[in-house]
Design a protein around this nucleic acid. Structure first.
Lengths: 232, 232
DNA sequence: GAGTTACGCTACGACCTGTAGCGAAAGCTC
DNA sequence: GAGCTTTCGCTACAGGTCGTAGCGTAACTC
């Protein structure tokens, strides 16, 4: 029902079903218009909407391509022209949700981290993401192309928050500047895996709520380890 | 090929397919022997072996019940008499692998944690666990019974390591004793989610190696946050 | 218009799921 | 041993999903 504005050409299309990501130099928006009838952007949006709806109602395992097509008011073949497999479709459908993640400046590293933890937890509470995220990650262990798609569509969107948060903390003097770029990257990756990993594990594996109390305790642990200022 | 010694009656059997866990008071080993032909323990073992083999070769998504039955030299119906669904079968098949996890006393909290991190990482490197773990967790988001099965078969086996490690660290004087049991449980859960979560996330989502360097950095971060002694 | 591509529709083969029904096998108790 | 009970392997099956092919039509460019 919500009309999306995205137009990100999600397709590897019918052209390179081989799976190589490469892309056929479609720079951004216009490219040079290929001949023939263009793909319906409305169909794209309808399919992704339908996928999210289906995820909520059916969950990952019972979601079928035929069902999504029907919900979207689209022929099944149209769906297959864009996404070769269910998992790729779902990655794209869920990816947008990660754009919600923001990192408003709350004044301290401690509060910034706590804020993002709770936000991320809220995102994982949604049935679409809860049921889909682990499933596609599981698939990706045997599919390099899917792994790359997840990285660019989901992981990188989260990682930028870590980079931003560190930058602010360094400006505040809460964290030291790294000596080498290598070390800087390593630290950021580590922190990212700790935060995202802990939240996901708590929410999905331990299946316990990520509430304020937990977020506070976790944040204290992390920031303490970072050697950051921990105000009483 | 490996003859297993387990005999853990994994079945909710054909009796309570409704899914309620409850169990029908089969205390431990002997119970009182029901009349009729007993279930073949050899078949149990063969099926679980075959499941692990199939996971290695095919991965989660392409593993089928029929295929497992064939590999195990067992009729498909025999398989369904024990496990109602693929995910339950896989949980049981993979669970044994988590028994490998040990926590030898390495002398310090820092080294204990680092050791278990590397062990856990090695376990996640195996294709059986890599492809299966996230998949069953994903399924469990919509299946309370499966969630419980995962908890008792996998999660609890890991969590005991945390409890043991903390106990040792407290005995060494590296960690303070918790004031209340509630706080103690909360801390253990937190630490568990941080360790397991970070390792899983690094290995499966970020898809980067959990090597010695990473383990050292992570451990330093965690132990530092715990307020433990961090020798230069 | 000519050319090209996307669309909806129908149909299809291949595969997987989970169950039913059968005769035979393997235990138990008397 | 006889009788009872449950499991086993086998075959067959209905129901559902996957992914593709072929067709006529729609949309867009030159």
């Amino acid at each position: 029902m919500i009309s999306l504005t995205i137009m990100r050409r999600a397709d590897d299309g019918p052209y390179l079903l081989t799976g190589m990501v490469a892309v056929m130099s479609t720079p951004a928006t216009p490219a040079h218009p290929r001949p023939g009838r263009p793909r319906s952007a409305a169909a794209d949006a309808a399919i992704l909407d339908a996928t999210r709806d289906a995820l909520v109602e059916l969950g990952w395992s019972k979601l079928t391509m035929g069902d999504v097509a029907q919900r979207a008011g689209v022929a099944k073949t149209t769906l297959y022209r864009r996404w070769a497999h269910k998992n790729e479709l779902v990655v794209d459908a869920v990816a947008v949700l990660f754009d919600e993640l923001q990192l408003p400046d709350r004044g301290s590293l401690l509060e910034d981290v706590q804020g993002v933890v709770l936000q991320f937890a809220a995102l994982l509470e949604r049935p679409e993401t809860k049921t889909a995220l682990m499933a596609v990650v599981a698939e990706s262990t045997r599919d390099a192309a899917l792994r790359e798609r997840i990285r660019s569509a989901i992981v990188d969107r989260q990682k930028r928050l870590v980079l931003l948060g560190r930058e602010r903390a360094q400006a505040r003097g809460e964290l030291p500047y790294e000596e080498s770029p290598v070390q800087a990257a390593r630290n950021a990756d580590l922190i990212f895996d700790v935060i995202a990993g802990a939240v996901v594990h708590r929410a999905l594996v331990s299946a316990e709520p990520v509430d304020e109390t937990w977020a506070r305790n976790f944040t204290a642990l992390l920031v303490g380890g970072l050697g950051g200022v921990t105000p009483a």
